[in-house]
Amino acid sequence: MRAKYAVKQISVFLENRKGRLLEVTEALKEANINIRALAMAESAEFGILRLVVDNPEKAKTALSKCGFTINEQDVFAVEVDDEPGSFHKVVRVLAEDDINIDYTYAFVGDSHKAVLIFRVQDESIEKALEALSQNGVQLVEPIFFYS
């Protein structure tokens, strides 16, 4: 099940200085890469920009050529109704199966649906996908993100 639902996320490590995010977006624009989802976490000295893009391999190449330090992780996505309690339902299923969520981010899609992206430990992905599927949570196939 993991291979069917694994979405490639690219993490870009950025010095916390003026213009650095602009350089990332410029590199992706020049490579004709579409950003489908993103989240950014920062500290005083650096930030981590997490991206789901339409062509992860091409994006990694473009960013590496520009000198960015990048990493790739498997994440998974679920689609829920865009209404109160939907996020809670997913988190509850994972918690009840003793699956720790490293981080999550979301965006609102079409048709009053929200897409939630989750990162759990690699050894927990299969267990998470199985638990969610068994509890009626709609898993999102990677083709949703890729061109």
Rank of each mutant, 00 (worst) to 15 (best):
Glu23Gln: 11
Glu23Ala: 08
Val24Cys: 05
Val24Asp: 02
Thr25Arg: 03
Thr25Cys: 06
Glu26Arg: 09
Glu26Met: 07
Ala27His: 04
Ala27Lys: 02
Lys29Glu: 13
Lys29Ser: 11
Glu30Asp: 11
Asn32Thr: 09
Asn32Tyr: 11
Asn32Trp: 05
Ile33Trp: 02
Ile33Glu: 03
Asn34Glu: 10
Ile35Val: 14
Ile35Pro: 01
Ile35Asp: 00
Ala37Pro: 00
Ala37Leu: 00
Ala37Val: 02
Leu38His: 07
Ala39Val: 08
Ala39Trp: 00
Ala39Phe: 07
Ala41Pro: 04
Glu42Gln: 15
Glu42Thr: 13
Ser43Glu: 02
Ser43Gln: 11
Ser43Asp: 05
Ser43His: 06
Ser43Arg: 07
Ala44Arg: 14
Ala44Cys: 09
Ala44Pro: 07
Glu45Thr: 15
Phe46Asn: 13
Phe46Ile: 10
Phe46Ala: 15
Gly47Trp: 00
Ile48Lys: 06
Leu49Cys: 09
Val52Asn: 00
Val53Glu: 03
Asp54Ile: 07
Asp54Val: 09
Asn55Lys: 10
Asn55Ala: 15
Glu57Phe: 01
Glu57Gly: 08
Lys58Cys: 05
Lys58Met: 09
Ala59Asp: 07
Thr61Ile: 07
Thr61Phe: 05
Thr61Lys: 10
Ala62Asn: 07
Ala62Ser: 09
Lys65Phe: 02
Cys66Ser: 14
Cys66Leu: 06
Cys66Trp: 01
Gly67Ala: 12
Phe68Val: 04
Thr69Ser: 15
Thr69Pro: 04
Ile70Pro: 08
Glu72Pro: 10
Gln73Phe: 10
Gln73Ser: 12
Gln73Thr: 08
Val75Cys: 10
Val75Phe: 03
Val75Ser: 05
Phe76Gly: 00
Ala77His: 03
Glu79Tyr: 03
Glu79Trp: 05
Asp82Tyr: 12
Pro84Thr: 04
Gly85Thr: 09
Ser86Gln: 14
Ser86Ile: 12
Phe87Ala: 11
His88Phe: 05
Val91Tyr: 02
Val91Ala: 15
Val93His: 05
Val93Phe: 05
Val93Trp: 03
Leu94Phe: 02
Ala95Arg: 14
Asp98His: 14
Ile99Gly: 00
Ile101Met: 11
Ile101Val: 15
Thr104Val: 15
Tyr105Phe: 12
Tyr105Cys: 08
Tyr105Asp: 02
Ala106Asn: 03
Phe107Lys: 02
Phe107Asn: 07
Asp110Gly: 03
Ser111Leu: 10
Ser111Lys: 10
Ser111Ile: 04
His112Thr: 07
Ala114Met: 12
Val115Phe: 12
Leu116Met: 13
Leu116Ser: 01
Ile117Ala: 01
Ile117Val: 15
Arg119Leu: 12
Arg119Pro: 01
Gln121Thr: 08
Asp122Thr: 09
Asp122Cys: 13
Glu123Leu: 11
Glu126Asp: 14
Glu126Thr: 11
Lys127Ile: 02
Lys127His: 09
Ala128Cys: 04
Leu129Phe: 13
Leu129Lys: 14
Glu130Trp: 11
Glu130Pro: 01
Ala131Tyr: 09
Leu132Ile: 07
